[in-house]
């Protein structure tokens, strides 16, 4: 019996079915957290992030049959997420939403109340790496998050963000140097 061919995601090692509904269930199960967290990383707003993450999977469902499987499903979803988040950020004025994800999260903490902000800062104080990351120039945050948290390759990051791969490599390299300097300085101080 003939069936439409499914998609094999070599990176995920998952044989995705051709049927969009069935593929959607697998995508949500495997990549739901990454999509939502990436949206939260960019937008700093839980409700906005949830809304965007739903839209990501809707789009993935609608376009599943045109997904060629050249890259991983994960990278494809990340690309959709990044684009949707950027669209959302464009809809707001620059004064309303700062572009720095770290600042966005602080804003979210403020919106949730002073207690939540203090708790967030207290927790951040224990998060050595993230504290140093937050102190880096904003354009390094995206590359570090996509590379170290989502495990995307520099090529996939370039495709998702629209930046040349060389630029991505350069930012990662410089971000690593800056992080290393800060971590070493902290070790010496302590």
């Amino acid at each position: 019996m003939e069936r439409p061919a499914g998609q094999v995601d070599r990176n995920d090692r998952v044989d995705y079915p051709a049927d969009p509904s069935a593929a959607l269930e697998i995508m949500m199960e495997r990549h739901g957290n990454d999509v939502l967290r990436t949206a939260f990383f960019y937008l700093g707003d839980r409700h906005l992030a949830e809304d965007v993450s739903q839209e990501v999977f809707l789009r993935a469902y609608r376009h599943w049959t045109s997904f060629r499987g050249d890259g991983s499903v994960k990278a494809w979803l990340a690309k959709i997420t990044v684009h949707l988040c950027r669209d959302r950020l464009r809809l707001k004025s620059a004064s309303e939403v700062p572009a720095d994800p770290a600042l966005l999260r602080q804003d979210a903490g403020r919106a949730a109340g002073r207690g939540a902000e203090e708790e967030a800062m207290r927790r951040l104080g224990r998060a050595g790496l993230l504290r140093h990351l937050a102190a880096l120039p904003p354009h390094y945050h995206e590359a570090l998050y996509l590379y170290y948290y989502l495990d995307l390759s520099t090529k996939e990051i370039a495709e998702a963000t629209g930046a040349p791969e060389g630029t991505v490599r350069g930012r990662l390299s410089r971000a690593r140097e800056l992080l290393a300097e800060r971590l070493q300085r902290e070790e010496r101080t302590s």
Binding site: V35, L36, L129, L130
Partner: peptide, 18 residues
């Protein structure tokens, strides 16, 4: 990457689940 994920999961995304 390990430290990034650990800290991000604990401090940024602790309750952020799809």
């Amino acid at each position: 990457a390990r430290r990034f994920k650990e800290e991000a999961d604990e401090f940024w995304f602790r309750d952020v689940r799809f």
